[in-house]
Design a protein around this nucleic acid. Structure first.
Lengths: 189, 189
DNA sequence: CTATTTATTGAATAGTCACTCAATAAGGAA
DNA sequence: TTCCTTATTGAGTGACTATTCAATAAATAG
């Protein structure tokens, strides 16, 4: 056999699952081989090395995340209702049985900024900055620049908070109360 | 030579520095040997294994963190001023050159909950719950139970947020603005 | 049909990992 | 002093790591 027998997207998705659960270092190439069904040589031929594969996974993860945010806000009756819906989704996600936080957040904490160009730490940080920009651009449809900027930061702080707080047991209700206190300008019921 | 030639606390502190910067898995025993000056056999004789050593480091880190919070709040003119001072300290810390977030947060994200008893993930999560309890107990001196509980959660969400947001470049001012928006009940200037 | 290109294979490589253990050295107890 | 306990040593262990590469198989070009 030869020539494009596997689907690149499927390999990315299966690898994403693994990286999300175990992080970068703890996901071994052996596990990737088992999860994707590809042989080591195939992976290296198609993706270069583990870091390149991970980079593609991160890019895909980031694109999906931002698409989902857009979808949620665009589908809501107002910007603020959309933002609230996204936060509620994030909380709901965090109590699922195999919750594994956010790959970008995990990557930023796991990989150190070694000073080299295009390191994975900075890559994740930049993607998260883009998420903030996305929220800010939505807010600017409703508020002045200053308010939009402040509230975008506040949203990011709360999302990051939920990404970590979500590991506490039975935390959904508590988190929603905490979000309501910290984001009183959102249209809570 | 023999018998207690090294100081246990110093070994813990030096290992803490390493674990804070690289995380659990990425800190090799070889690095621990180099950092602490102990030989492999000595470390295993005194601490059991890498996980036990890390557990002692986590315990020490948690104790130090909570002591510092108490110190800051007890030394302030009011509970709320103390909480604000602690948040400002956290922000200030996050812009230092070798910032490495919070070991408990990093551990919770790096190590998965494998379901086993006393795993490191749960250990870190429990320590973070105690930090929340500490804030709640302070707040209960000023507010009713419900308000104290909600605001303690809100504080934790913001601290977690800062722990991650701190990796963005030039973020100190932005974070302070975000905190001011999300925690308007604190005595800002 | 033949030649060339290219995806796939999987055993093999060198390096790193956490960890061990017999030998050794130095206290305290008798 | 002699014995016993215990901290220290550091070379060594096997398991695992990411990665390679010559061989192979299939699709495409001429």
């Amino acid at each position: 056999m030869a020539k494009v027998l596997f689907k690149r997207d499927e390999v990315i998705d299966k690898s994403m699952w693994l990286f999300c659960h175990n992080g970068f270092k703890a996901s071994s190439m052996q596990q990737i081989v088992e999860t994707t069904g590809l042989k080591p040589g195939s992976i290296y031929h198609s993706f270069g090395n583990k870091e390149s594969l991970f980079r593609e996974v991160l890019t895909s993860y980031s694109a999906k995340s931002m698409a989902k945010i857009r979808e949620t806000i665009d589908g809501a009756e107002s910007i603020n209702e959309g933002i609230l819906a996204h936060l509620e989704n994030t909380v709901a996600e965090s109590i699922s049985v195999d919750y594994c936080s956010c790959l970008l957040v995990k990557t930023q904490l796991e990989l150190t900024d070694d000073g080299k160009k295009n390191n994975l730490h900075d890559f994740a940080a930049n993607q998260l900055k883009e998420v903030e920009s996305l929220f800010r651009s939505y807010l600017e449809r409703e508020y002045d620049e200053e308010t939009s900027s402040e509230r975008a930061v506040s949203i990011m702080l709360h999302i990051f908070g939920v990404r970590i707080y979500g590991y506490q047991q039975g935390s959904a209700e508590l988190m929603l109360k905490g979000l309501r206190v910290g984001l009183p300008w959102l249209p809570w019921n």
